[in-house]
Amino acid sequence: MIARKTENPRSHRVRSDGPFYLGLGILGGVYVFLILAVLVADMAFLVVPEKGASGPNPFLKALASPEIRYSIKLSLISCSITTILSLWVSVPIGYVMSRFRFIGKSFIDSVLDIPIVLPPLVIGLSLLILFSSGPGMWFEGLFHGVTGTRITYAIPGVILAQFMVACAFAVRTMRATFDEISPRREQVAQTLGCSRGQAFWMVALPEARRGLVVAATLAWARSLGEFGPILVFAGATRLKTEVMSTSVFLLMSVGDVEAAVAVSMIMIVAAVGVLVLVRLMGSERYVR
């Protein structure tokens, strides 16, 4: 220790940065590699035929089945409807939570997080319990009277189950988006002659468009992957309430792994496609 004290502080030897960069690279790289490896394995499983296996490509075989085609169609339509509904709800909630202070705000803030922290299966079960209660049955009767379709074990149930979870993510995103936009711009718009509503539509919402795109993507991707709540609340009836995630589950449960992977691949392509689309739209060139 005495020797250290007498050392010239100017001759301090700086440690190499190598181990730090190596650590960052290895820890981060493992996860990126895992994601890519999973995708490559899926593709290899479909492209490279198993020994002794013959017959048509499992991908085309899966696509040829009317049940699978129905589930793809239902998935794409229900996810899109859920996304639109989520945006309609998440924009006003996000705006209110970001711009206004009111009694009970922290309570509502916690309530909005419940769908994110609850296990999805529990959400499905809770929906089912709600709709078997008196008011729930009354509402379903009313809905049936107006639209001619039920909610539970029907397509509206699929959408509601997706919406319950997807919307919570859209709300979080929209709130963070409005938090980042200075209210000053809306104030200036008000001095220029806008009402609060006009300032919102003409200034705040256009400024929030990047957040809107992100919220829509998150909502769409969450609904595409939704499984537990749909299974419990809307069932998995073929050609009725079967979506892609339930198809994968049903195909796996009867041992048709090839078809399950084929449907999974379609979901991967759809999800990656949306991701790329958002990246393109979200790039500086498009946003500014």
């Binding site: 200075s182 000053r184 711009r185 104030q187 200036v188 718009a189 001095t191 200034v203 256009p206 400024e207 468009r209 500014r288």
Partner: peptide, 13 residues
């Protein structure tokens, strides 16, 4: 009233 805030607060879009 014409109002000019400190940072300008221009509308980015």
């Amino acid at each position: 009233i014409g109002y000019v805030p400190q940072d300008g607060a221009l509308f980015s879009t």
